[in-house]
Amino acid sequence: MKILVFTEQREGKFKRTAYEAISAGKKLATELNAELIALAIGNNLDAQVNEFGAYGISRVIVVADARLQMYSTTAYAKIIAEVAEKENAQIIFLSASQMGKDLAPRIAVKLDAGCASDCIALSVENGDIVATRPVYAGKATINVKINSAIKIFTLRPNVFTAKTTDAVTPTIEKFPVALTDADFASKVIHISVATGRPDVTEATIVISGGRGMKAPENFQLIEALADTLGAGVGASRAVVDAGWRSHDEQVGQTGKTVSPSVYIACGISGAVQHLAGMSGSKCIVAINKDKDAPIFQIADYGIVGDALTVLPAMVVEVKKLLGK
């Protein structure tokens, strides 16, 4: 049996989620006694893929082409499906990132495979791979198994831990794929970076603000704490709709789903639609003036107080802790 892990890179740099997927693949490969193969697509990736060895992967397939420097749904999906077919891989892992979720359904059709999206746990039960995934905005989880011969899983970022193990030197194989213009029927022609801060879906710490921040300029307090901690900045829908913050930052049912190690909610009431996006966080901190705000029901630690004075004090205290 073979497990193929698609490793995502943007502009030549592999993402942490790629290593998370490799580590999840490594664990499953050990349980199933399967061979693990990493697949990297892009241009000039040889130096970086060597580093995969630190995560215990011994075989890497690279598909390199100048036209693959930028993401193309059509071309990448074709390559992944071709490699999976050639290798006879029965299990395919992608990260449930914007790229992975874009690719997985197209690959599923090409390989006549079922796909379990946004998995938060994987186990082997009676020889079946059972995936756990949240549904109904995290109000429930389901366990699913895939009945098709080829099975695809996308893994929620920040849930599976990237683990270095005894380093190996991977063999790196070039895989030739003949690509025509038609394969680039859709392609990325431009990327713009939003803020330089980590995205809320990838950040290990997220600090979010809501209407209780009182005014858009007060988000500087959140940004200051975020930059001290290397955190991402999130927002409730109320402040996004008010135009205080951009849509990219919205956490919740109609925004992003996040699972950081710690989520700090400042001036957010904790409406069900907001909880939908962040209840999977490992630790939740709430700062809210109202002791009855629903956010305290799911918080680990809370301060019933004014976020506008608590946040600056947090910056001071965190700087002390970090010796900055």
Binding site: I142, N147, F296
Partner: peptide
């Protein structure tokens, strides 16, 4: 192709301090 085996409600155990 994808079969649901079971649905669960997650048990949230929060410190609430």
């Amino acid at each position: 192709k994808v079969e649901t085996l079971a649905m669960h409600k997650p048990i949230a155990s929060r410190v609430k301090k």
